[in-house]
Amino acid sequence: MLEIRNLHASVDGNEILRGVNLTVNAGEVHSIMGPNGSGKSTLAQVLAGREDYEVTEGEVIYKGRDLLEMEPDERACEGVFLAFQYPVEIPGVSMNYFLRAALNSVRRHRGEKELDAVGYLKLVREQSKIVELDEKLLGRAVNEGFSGGEKKRNEIFQMALLEPALSILDETDSGLDIDALRIVADGVNKLRSPERAMVIVTHYQRLLDYIVPDFVHVLVDGRIVKSGGKELAHELEKQGYAGVDAGRAVAASS
């Protein structure tokens, strides 16, 4: 589904990603772990098409197409979903309005019928249960006045609503208490399916207790230096990132 080859990216002339290789197949859950500043979030943002980052080398193939050539909204319509680490507030635009517009944009792209207000509300009612999101929040402006936990749940809720093929979760666990973490993780697990792939970017192993990955990759200084199964996460927990030898990059396998 996704193939990243020798991806280099920089911001303001500083190279953050220095040759990332990663292959993700449908049905797989990959976790990308790494210390602060290793480039994890950059990778997530580059995949979603953030313009602040300049791709200087390498390629990303998504469903057989060059992902880097696509505009951010086209990527979204094609099924790439980024759950933001810091979801932005958009004053004056209600969640409901925003979501219906987004949903219909994606549906149009897929050649599906647009949803009317009734159909939309029905869908929202179902999906909001997945992350126990209070429907009242949907009457408010996008992310405005949401607590940290509500923002994160809102992201997963949108993921459920838009049914992406490839979900990238950027530090979705940060700032969540244990209960909220469990709710978010449950939501994510419910969305796992053989057609979908997920890339979970996280600093801590704790989220991976709830969402068990098929593969774990360690990103250090903009390169994947080690890949393995879920046990790698526990190893890191014990040894810390310092224990990972940054000198010998191991190509990601899957």
Partner: peptide
């Protein structure tokens, strides 16, 4: 904000 536009783009909306 650029981040607002990006957020919308990421949900499938054109700029």
């Amino acid at each position: 904000g650029e981040d607002q536009l990006f957020y919308c783009n990421q949900r499938g909306l054109s700029t």
